[in-house]
């Protein structure tokens, strides 16, 4: 009796796990199924490498692809040093009390909604940028990137801290015993040991930056034209999906957003795959 119950329960658990992993595949198949009409017509390269002008019947996603990448890279350039510095302070450089406070603050920061950041930045940062540029609305890739950096930083900091803390105590104690200062211990012992983790955290942060919708939708300006410089307003893939929803379900505009969804899916899946490969590689080597 107990045996039968336990095998039933086990099947229920199995079903839940399999169901969720099938969902992952189902989302991909869904997108593929709906995006197929566009992909089949053999215009994939044209779709990916031409501009967006529905009036002429061209539904290229090139400007959005470029903007997404540019914005993510720019925000990582800002958030990487900041996250690294903060994680240095949290792991060793600061006094214990400050470390605890900082850690608490960073944890709370992970819970702040992106829409709240964007809302505040829209009324604070955008007017400032407008004055600096001297023209336009003030919304641009440059305006969105620091806010996006603020959104991705907590995740990266927590990841950096945990990988720096994973450095075996025998190493750090040895550095202490040799009379090394905190900075020396950090620079010559912990960072060389933890760099795969730091790289991994950066991948994770990049994935978040490319997948974020609200910051780019509210602050980047949403112009579908190809951005000539980072002070131009531009539209990311995520914002493009959100904005194109209003169109008719059978139109080409609507179909093109599935290609958007597919590319976002593939980009983040590849990032995750890299992340997994690196994690398993590192754990094998240790």
């Amino acid at each position: 009796m107990i045996c039968r119950v336990s095998s039933t329960v086990e099947y229920i658990f199995l079903a839940a796990a399999v169901f969720v992993s099938l969902l992952t595949a189902a989302v991909f198949l869904f997108l593929l199924f709906f995006g197929l009409p566009l992909l089949q017509s053999g215009q994939l390269t044209e779709l990916l490498f031409s501009s967006w002008s529905p009036g002429k019947g061209v539904y290229g996603l090139y400007p959005m692809l470029v903007t997404s990448t540019l914005l993510a890279v720019l925000s990582m350039l800002i958030s990487f040093p900041i996250s690294l510095g903060t994680s240095f302070l949290i792991t060793s450089l600061a006094p214990l009390k400050i470390r605890q406070i900082l850690m608490g603050a960073v944890r709370v920061m992970t819970g702040i909604p992106t829409v709240v950041y964007s809302f505040a930045a829209l009324f604070l940062l955008v007017p400032i940028m407008r004055n600096i540029f001297g023209h336009g609305t003030g919304m641009s890739i440059l305006t969105a990137s620091p806010v996006l950096a603020l959104v991705t930083a907590p995740t990266m900091i927590l990841f950096f801290v945990s990988s720096l803390n994973k450095v075996p105590a025998s190493y750090t104690l040895a550095a202490d015993a040799l009379g090394g200062s905190q900075v020396q211990k950090l620079l010559y012992v912990m960072v060389p040991q933890a760099w795969p983790g730091i790289l991994n955290g950066t991948l994770l942060g990049f994935g978040r930056a490319i997948g974020d919708t609200m910051v780019s939708l509210m602050l980047a300006g949403n112009s579908p034209a190809y951005p000539d410089s980072i002070t131009d307003p531009a539209r990311t893939l995520t914002a493009h999906i959100a904005l194109t929803m209003a169109y008719d379900f059978d139109s080409m505009e609507f179909k093109s957003i599935f290609v958007c969804g597919l590319s976002l899916y593939l980009i983040t899946a590849i990032l995750m795959l890299l992340f997994r490969l690196m994690t398993s590689h590192v754990s094998k080597n240790l």
């Binding site: 997948g211 969804g261 997994r276």
Partner: peptide
């Protein structure tokens, strides 16, 4: 386990707008 782990990781990494898009497709 690695296969399921990877699947969960990918699902966790999918941008929320794509999840929304999938929900919309389900509705259609």
């Amino acid at each position: 386990q690695p296969v399921l782990n990877l699947a969960f990781d990918i699902l966790a990494g999918i941008p929320s707008i794509v999840v929304g898009l999938a929900g919309l497709l389900l509705t259609i």
